[in-house]
């Protein structure tokens, strides 16, 4: 294995593009090192992107939006004085991943790139409308998080492409987000179902919404029908019923020891209701 420490994302992309064997990018390493240790993947080229300027920075831009470096760890997001005030759902979802020790290294981008449909931060990223800059041999492009997962463990990234920055939209007024997951215990487990919701209000009425489900399909889903079910409503009982129905209808889960198809489908509706109520209360400033 060759260990690379490029000084720019263009260099990182060039190394990956010209590599002939198995390539991995290293940020927090909480998945890559486990795969190496378990003999699942032994990269020929391991590209550590932490020597690139800015990868540890959390920056709020003049328009209120946020730019995060790709090696910012979960603990650094949780400890940030204002990021979690804007995006509590996103920060809480990230904080659910692993132990204190894992939080010291694990990143949003790694959680996305590991390609698990059950990744806790990903439905929260999708709900928040997070986008990523992708640097490749031919330059940069911007991709929405919901367009990146291609299936379990697979991403819509070309050879030589590397995610080089995280963009979180400006929160703006009268808005809130939330993420909830179901696990059979209280800590450190993999989501059986996860649901992220972000919404904006005009008075009591929802004007914008994004709803995302995790662990109920081969990829994390952005569910338009869930958003439609609550936009234009005051999140009354009829809207919550319609939201739960739309969430259940979007599910295409697997059946395994962690949860049956029936159970996951039912829980998706329950979590959508609860997460919507939390996001709504946050949008009201409650």
């Amino acid at each position: 294995m060759k260990y690379h420490t490029p000084a720019s994302f263009a260099d990182a992309a060039a190394i990956a593009a010209s590599a002939s064997g198995v390539t991995r990018f290293l940020a927090g390493g909480t998945d890559v090192l486990v795969q190496m240790r378990s003999d699942i993947v032994m990269p020929d080229d391991l590209i550590d992107i932490k020597h690139i300027d800015g990868v540890k920075d959390i920056t709020q831009n003049a328009d209120g939006s946020w730019t995060l470096g790709v090696a910012v760890a979960g603990a650094e997001m949780s400890e940030h004085p204002t990021l979690g005030k804007d995006w509590p759902g996103l920060v809480e979802a990230t904080d659910l991943i692993g132990s204190t020790q894992v939080q010291g290294r694990a990143t949003l981008v790694g959680n996305l790139c590991n390609g698990s449909p059950a990744a806790d931060s990903v439905p929260a990223q999708v709900a928040a409308g997070v986008t990523m800059t992708v640097t490749g041999p031919n330059g940069d492009r911007v991709a929405a998080v919901e367009d990146l997962p291609a299936g379990p463990g697979r991403l819509n990234l070309e050879k030589g492409e590397v995610i080089s920055a995280v963009h979180i939209p400006a929160r703006g007024d009268n808005a809130g987000d939330a993420y909830l997951r179901f696990i059979p215990r209280t800590e450190m487990d993999i989501a059986v179902v996860g649901c992220g919701i972000s919404l904006r209000l005009d008075g009591d009425t929802i004007t914008e919404a994004r709803v995302s489900l995790g662990a109920v399909a081969p990829t994390v889903l952005l569910v338009e029908d869930c958003a439609k079910a609550i936009i234009g409503t005051t999140l009354d009982d009829a809207a919550l019923d319609a939201l739960a129905k739309a969430a259940e209808a979007a599910c295409n889960p697997i059946d395994d020891k962690r949860g049956t198809i029936e159970f996951r489908t039912d829980v998706a509706g329950v979590l959508a209701r609860r997460a919507a109520k939390i996001a709504y209360a946050r949008a009201k400033g409650e």
Binding site: Y3, L26, G28, L33, A73, S99, G104, R105
Partner: peptide, 27 residues
């Protein structure tokens, strides 16, 4: 465990608690 599950390898790096089994020596 060697895979980040047990915490027996806990150390701090620049004051941040981590699992030393989940970090390369080169890092």
């Amino acid at each position: 465990c060697g895979t980040g599950d047990c915490g027996a390898c806990s150390v701090t790096v620049d004051g941040r608690l981590i699992c030393s089994c989940l970090m390369l020596g080169a890092e």
